[in-house]
Structures are given as structure tokens and as C-alpha cells.
Simulated scan of single mutants.
Amino acid sequence: MPNEVLVLAYAGCDTCRKAQKWLKEQGVAHRVRPIVEEPPTVAELRQWLPLSGLPLRKWLNLSGQSYRALGKAKVDAASDAELMSWLAADGKLVKRPVLVSGSTVLVGFQPEAWARALTPAR
């Protein structure tokens, strides 16, 4: 695979651990970036957002403490610029894991989608 597979993950996240285990079982070489210590930058978010095909708000971890601390009303009232700065400042606010491989960006772990994205076209 010509492009490095990057996974932004949180060590305390069961879904992130499942995703990493799945990658290992599939023989996919990858690098894990700790999302709490190194959240995506605003520049990365600007690049990755269109590649993910998701609206910005789908990048939010709605079940996490960071989201609850902000509160739904504050998040709903926030501009995209504010949301991006919050996501870049707090990796726990980001839905995870995030897989980045070339022009593919996937948010959250769905084995079927990851398999499609990581299987070379024939």
C-alpha cells in the first residue's frame, strides 16, 4: 500500500482497540496517533472533512464527557469555525477512531467500510 495508514485513536476506547485489532488481523500496516495528545489540527480537519464525505457535526463524539461538558445547546449554536477549533483542541470531542489512508478518511469503526477502503482496486 503506497500511502501510510494513519489511525487516530484513544487508548481508553474499546472501539479504537477493536479497530486496531481488526487492522492487525487483516495485516494492514498502520501508525496509531494518540488522539487525546495529538488531536487533528484545524488544517487537517479542513483537508479531511471533504474526504470523509461527512458533515462536520458527524465528527463529534456525542457520547463523550467533552460533548456533555459543552452541552447540546452550545454545540448546536456553534459555528463550523468554532466546532473545528474545539475538535482541534480536544481529541476526546472527536468521534473515533479516525482512519486516514491517502484520499480516504473514515470516522468511527465499521469493519465493512474499512475493508472496502483498504482493499486495493482490482
Score class of each variant (00 low, 15 high):
K21L: 03
E25R: 08
Q26K: 03
G27D: 02
V28A: 04
V28F: 02
A29P: 01
R31D: 04
R31V: 03
V32I: 06
R33I: 13
I35C: 05
V36F: 10
E38V: 04
E38H: 12
P40K: 04
V42A: 15
A43Q: 14
E44Q: 15
L45H: 15
R46N: 13
Q47I: 02
W48K: 08
W48T: 03
W48N: 10
L49M: 12
L49Y: 10
P50S: 13
S52I: 08
G53I: 05
G53M: 07
L54N: 10
L54I: 05
P55N: 09
P55C: 08
L56V: 12
L56Y: 11
L56P: 15
L60W: 07
L60T: 09
L62I: 06
L70W: 03
L70D: 00
K72C: 04
K72T: 11
A73S: 11
K74L: 07
V75L: 15
A78R: 11
S79V: 07
E82H: 05
M84Q: 13
W86A: 04
L87N: 14
A89C: 08
D90R: 00
G91Q: 00
K92E: 02
P97G: 00
V98C: 10
V98L: 11
L99A: 04
G102D: 06
T104P: 10
T104F: 14
T104I: 15
T104H: 15
V105N: 09
V107K: 10
G108K: 09
G108Q: 07
P111V: 04
P111W: 04
W114R: 01
A115F: 01
A115P: 06
R116C: 08
